[in-house]
Amino acid sequence: MRKLGKKLMATVVAATMALGLAACSGGKDTGTTTAGGNKTAEKIKVGIINNDPNESGYRTANDKDLKAMFCDANGYDASFAYSLKNDEQITAAQKFIQDGVDYLLLSAADTSGWDSVLKDAQNAGVKVILFDRTIDADESLYVASIVSDMDKEGETAANWLKDQNLSEYNIIHLQGVMGSAAQQGRSGALDKLAKENGWKIVTQQTAEWSAEKAQQIVQSVIDSGESFNVIYAENDDMAKGAVEALDKANISHGVGKDVVVMGFDCNKWALEELLAKNWNYDGQCNPFQASYIDEVIKKLEKGETITQKVIIMEEKGFDASTITKEDVEKYGI
């Protein structure tokens, strides 16, 4: 039985490998034919390296946006590569450079280790545009970097909270995974304003972006009997978990109610909660970089130079009392 099992396994493995090879070569064939065709000659060739679209709602929206922009109809010949691992991304970058792309668009999984491959790109005349994430490399190695300013997102939210002029501030602060850029920016701004204005932070705890953990943390505050009137959650999921705990304890939340609920990321369902006035605020983390990138490429194609290397995207904060249905459709991810 064991021997048979091993033989069977070996056959299966061999078969999958063969199939994989066939699939790979098939892919390559189609790749070269499109590249060699007449139509693609005037098209701009871009290689896009992104994180796995399954990673989060943000990434899914980001990937959709890029795919919609960099298509044949808009004059682009785009190839995509996805990975959450830096070394795989670097390999993909090398392949794109060998394929002779005009532009390399990059959302790096990790900030370091990109110098040599970007130098190769420069030597090969490939222009590199960073989106979503910056890297630790010399500025001369890329032409532009289109990013979100997490500090500013936090500031917008914290200032909004200040403008509410609540009679007292007792805040439950639900943090994301400690050390992530989003957590640092969003926590930093609240910490600063809380110190300046003497706001009371009832609890400050990491729920690691998870709704269930947020639910437990808020439940624990409710169990302790401490009073609070603001929930500052660093993403929508955690805000949802918190609201679930509030509902259980019959604590009202939303516009004109006992507890102010704040979230981030502008998921469509979260904006719908805003529209229903169950939540008060949602801060945007803009995943729609494609139009910015397109603008940069068009400028470069015309021979203009990019004066401003770091482009910070416009990001909004939505207030439940002013949000409209159109906003939900337009900005929801």
């Binding site: 399954n54 990673e55 989060s56 690691e208 972006w209 998870s210 709704a211 269930e212 639910q215 999921d237 949802k240 978990g241 679930e244 369902w269």
Partner: peptide
């Protein structure tokens, strides 16, 4: 139980 708690799901963090 997990999905019922929130009536929704987040693939990357549920039951992490």
């Amino acid at each position: 139980i997990k999905v019922s708690r929130l009536s929704t799901i987040n693939y990357s963090v549920i039951a992490k």
